[in-house]
Nucleic acid binder design. Structure first.
Lengths: 248, 248
DNA sequence: CGTAACCTTGATTAAGATCAATTCTCGTGG
DNA sequence: CCACGAGAATTGATCTTAATCAAGGTTACG
């Protein structure tokens, strides 16, 4: 499950927060990162584990989630390739971090699980990265920008959870997925607009702050109203105006 | 309502993100910030307004909140003195910002309202601050740390909203307020531990993701169980062990 | 002492969670 | 190619929590 090989500078350069680095820094970074591979369902870390450093998703899909005491789960983020996760503890405890003692006294803020077979992540050790950051102030600006996007995302998430019902949240998910979807690769089988879920309905429900039964009923309702059509992992949008109107 | 006077460097130095600045930078900062005073209920900005820059709370209390289409409100943050708010758009649009065009094309992410008479804020204009930031990389580290805390807070908030019921959220609020409370100034009138609400019950309900009627019933239930006692703005903790156990 | 803002309480309703039983889907081995 | 079984998804019946609607009570303050 673990193969202790470095990533490669070409990949690292495409990671947003590292785009400002020169060849030399990329080499340094490449030296300290280590790739790990995971299968679907494998745990990357638990929220009880001591903090080692943050991760980059190279390939696959990762979910960041919390579990309540009675076992219910809620997904906070879904992390796609070339994005990072678990950087927050690094800056919350920046002074305390040194290369020797990575983070024995603080923990990961949530759980992380791979959602696809062959998911690959790169661990960036906290202590070593701290050194790199101190000699490259341009990274911190990129990270501020990344944190801003995440703050915006969480604000939006809270807004949805508190001010929208499940139907609105589901409609909103479908609509924004469609809007953000790369336009090129649409299968000709479908003449109408559609999205493809890359997660299970169970995970989607958890991400939307509900449970799978309710999500199933919600989809059925939207289908009965002629707004969407659910075909396995594909959701075909039959009436985008109505869909948009629901989210309004 | 507006008095265009600067703050003072002594106050600015106490703001966390500026603690690393020297006298010279503090003077520069002082020159570009302008104090505004507000009464209870005054709007500081709406989420429809063009972005000017971020704010520091000098005195009083500010709520950051969203409103749904049908008028329901949810409070995302309560900002205390010496803390900043609305920095996110600055970094989301960093490249686009210049001193001339502050932010004509982007908006504040939420609404902000003063919750106390005599609330004072200082506006830090986006364009001018950008210049300061580029010549002082240590500020960006402080801001990363501030953003990390806010990300942690929002994660926690989502966790509460999705995985805890109203009773748990209320108990958790009381407990953490008590834990974070400055120990010194407890009135001798109360021999038992207590907290003092600095917001209305309506605002507290909105912050906890519920409505005032439900909050009232929840407090009554906790009171009937001998866990707390509500006396206007004071909530006396009668059984801290039980309270802690509820939050668990 | 009158009025407005704030808060409490009760009755009812609605959204969504839970529990339980099938059904569907898809990969694997015969 | 089919049968089997496991995991994923659907559907139905019921229950629970909290929102809504409505009325009355408290408090603060001019």
């Amino acid at each position: 499950m673990f193969n202790f090989i470095p990533v490669n500078t070409e990949t690292l350069k495409q990671v947003n927060i590292f785009s400002a680095l020169g060849e030399h820094e990329l080499d340094l970074l490449n030296d300290i990162t280590r790739v790990k591979s995971f299968n679907k369902g494998d745990i990357i870390f638990f929220d009880t584990e001591p903090y080692q450093g943050f991760y980059i998703v190279i390939k696959g899909l990762v979910k960041i989630y919390k579990i309540s005491k009675d076992g219910r789960e809620h997904i906070l983020h879904l992390i796609n390739p070339l994005n990072t996760f678990a950087e927050v503890p690094l800056f919350e405890n920046f002074e305390k971090i040194s290369e020797a003692t990575a983070g024995d006294m603080f923990r990961y803020p949530a759980n992380a699980m791979a959602l696809e077979d062959g998911t690959e992540t790169a661990l960036v050790p906290a202590g070593k990265f701290k050194g790199l950051l101190e000699s490259n102030s341009s990274i911190s600006m990129k990270m501020l920008s990344g944190f801003s996007k995440r703050l915006r995302h969480l604000n939006r998430h809270i807004e949805e959870l508190t001010l929208m019902d499940v139907t609105k949240r589901a409609a909103n998910f479908i609509y924004t997925e469609f809007i953000n979807k790369p336009k090129a690769k649409t299968e000709k089988k479908y003449t109408e607009p559609y999205i493809t879920l890359n997660i299970s309905k169970n995970d989607l429900a958890s991400y939307l702050g509900t449970i799978i039964e309710t999500l199933s009923r919600t989809f059925k309702k939207l289908q009965d109203e002629g707004i969407i059509e659910v075909d396995g992992k594909k959701i075909i949008i039959k009436d985008i105006d109505k869909l948009k109107k629901i989210t309004s």
